[in-house]
Write a protein that binds this DNA or RNA. Structure first.
Lengths: 181, 181
DNA sequence: CGTTCTCTGTACCGAACGGTAAACTGAAGT
DNA sequence: ACTTCAGTTTACCGTTCGGTACAGAGAACG
């Protein structure tokens, strides 16, 4: 029996592993056991090894947010774009049951390895949200602070929800942030 | 030449390593090179190995917050206790230049290993702050949400400050939270 | 059929991992 | 002086790490 994968099937599985275990906690053997792929296949898809796997995963996460969060914020009318963002965020983070890969990578020395990808993700999120708020009539200086506060609040809510083992913390925080905008 | 340490000198050094590298990223060899202690000394102080080192470090961080944040919140008059908290937090996290060990441990599977310590740290913080707010006259239901929001906001600010490489994010967030209470 | 190309399985490498054992050093206690 | 004991040093253990090499499987195409 021989199961054949394509790279596109593999990336989300690996993403979930990095999300659960962090960069250093993720070993090739954990990846092989959770994906069913041998090292040969893994290195066929990712010649750069573990670092390329993580970089690809980061790019995929970034792509998802770009398409379902940042772009709607830029393109749609402000209220609509922001509503899309709330729904997408709640969905993506499974209402607090899932953690942010990019945020997790940011906390330890893994950040240095992927600094530009990590910075870019958050910077574009904040910028897109700020611009939407400004287009919606908010004072530019306030909008910048509000956007920062929303993104930071989401990250903090994920940390706290997981620390307390209580996803409801995330839902509550999201509601509060929603009300404030 | 023979340098002799006491355990009390060693714990803060190890704490800083775990903070920088995370649990999985911290190896005994990194600890020996950054502390100057050989494995023998390390295992003399911590017979339980790496896990006991991390547990000790968590307990020390918890002790610090208990003494300089949670206790003042419970003991002092509310406004004073909260003021002490802001100063201690800003000081401890080096105005955004340092990350929260407990929050970092919470994000990956390391949380499972130290679940009760991690949950306890955040639960006691939120509880102490909530009670101080109630004693200060805030409606109990609002106080609970506000306390949660403050602790979560601090964690999020640390994540975002480090992700963007900009400690000012932390300072700004702290000011905002301060104003809101 | 034969070739080509993508993907897989397995065996292997040196290095680093967490951890152990035991001999040693030096100061304090008697 | 002799013991005791906290702390150090060094060598070593088995395992796992990330990474490599390479033969083989199987569909696609001529």
């Amino acid at each position: 029996m021989r199961t054949v994968y394509e790279k596109a099937d593999v990336v989300p599985m690996i993403a979930e592993i990095f999300r659960d275990l962090g960069y250093e906690g993720t070993s090739l053997s954990r990846i092989t056991e959770r994906t069913g792929l041998g090292k040969g296949s893994l290195y066929h898809f990712f010649p750069g090894g573990k670092e390329e796997m993580a970089a690809t995963v980061l790019a995929e996460v970034d792509g998802w947010f770009e398409r379902f969060v940042f772009e709607p914020l830029r393109r749609d009318d402000p209220a609509q774009g922001i509503a899309t963002m709330w729904a997408a965020v709640d969905d993506y983070f499974r209402s607090g049951g899932r953690v942010c890969l990019v945020g997790a990578f940011a906390l330890d020395e893994t950040r240095d390895r992927f600094a530009t990808a990590i910075r870019g993700y958050f910077a574009r999120w904040i910028e897109a949200l700020r611009d939407a708020l400004v287009r919606g009539g908010r004072d530019p200086a306030d909008a910048a602070l509000d956007a920062e506060e929303v993104v930071l609040g989401i990250q903090g809510a994920l940390v706290l929800a997981r620390a307390l083992g209580d996803p409801a913390v995330f839902t509550r925080a999201l509601d509060r942030l929603k009300d404030r905008l």
